[in-house]
Simulated scan of single mutants.
Amino acid sequence: MVIAAIVAQHFEATIKDHPKMKLRKIQKIYTSEMHVNVCIDFCYRAKKIVKEKMIENSKEEFRQFWDYAHELRSKMPGNTIKMVVQRVTVDSPPHFKRFYVCFDALKKGWKAGYRPLIRLDGCFLKDPFKSEFLAIVGKEANNQMFAIA
């Protein structure tokens, strides 16, 4: 007997790499690799299982940001660490919004050898939460490009 959990387990890496893969394609690949005919509902449930697992893994990783921020504050005082969370209601759990870290050594080095910024660069990340990554681009004393992410 083939159940959706087996299909999800077999295609977990494929669905993670290609989250927009069509259900018919999953069905066709599974049939050719495993020599078992599965209905489209099984593929739908398998894809849903994998996506829920990805979201749960992301939530667990975001929960670890609190520990990371606390460890940075305790081991290296002087760092600027800001984390912004959002709550829908007062009783609801916090939802991660933003995380900012600026190390004390970078602040001191930046102030000592200030160079004008060339540009602010950014890109959109393709994850279940549709996030954005920003970086500052500048030049060092020997005309080498650098980026601070």
Rank of each mutant, 00 (worst) to 15 (best):
L125W: 04
N143G: 04
F11C: 07
L120R: 06
G138T: 15
R24C: 08
C43Y: 05
A46R: 01
R63E: 11
Q144E: 13
K97F: 12
I40L: 15
H35G: 08
K97A: 13
D41T: 15
F129Y: 14
A149P: 07
D17L: 08
V2A: 02
K111S: 12
M21N: 01
G109H: 10
F133A: 14
F42M: 15
K59E: 14
V90D: 05
M145F: 09
A8V: 06
V84E: 05
K20I: 01
M76V: 05
A8H: 03
H35S: 13
F103W: 06
C39M: 10
A46T: 09
I49G: 00
S74F: 04
E12C: 05
K25T: 09
R115S: 12
H10P: 00
T89Q: 01
A141G: 10
C123A: 12
K97D: 10
D121T: 03
Q9C: 06
R73K: 13
F129T: 14
S32A: 12
L23S: 05
Y114F: 15
L72Q: 11
G138D: 09
D127W: 01
E60V: 09
F129A: 11
F129D: 11
L134G: 11
L134F: 15
N57M: 09
E33Y: 07
G122F: 15
V101K: 02
G138I: 07
I6P: 00
C102F: 07
K59C: 05
I55N: 01
V2W: 05
K130A: 11
R115Q: 14
V50I: 12
A149I: 12
V38P: 01
I81R: 08
A112D: 11
Q27F: 04
I148H: 04
M1L: 10
E52K: 10
K130G: 07
S92W: 00
N37I: 10
P116L: 08
K47G: 03
K75W: 04
A141P: 03
N57L: 03
M34R: 08
M21P: 03
D104T: 00
I40E: 15
E140L: 14
D121A: 13
I148D: 01
I26Y: 05
T14Y: 11
K108S: 03
C102W: 04
C43F: 07
K139V: 08
F96M: 03
N79P: 06
K28A: 14
N37E: 14
K28Q: 15
H35C: 10
I29T: 11
Y44Q: 14
G138K: 03
R63T: 04
I6M: 09
A5D: 08
I6R: 02
P77M: 03
H95P: 00
M76K: 08
M83R: 05
A5W: 04
N143F: 15
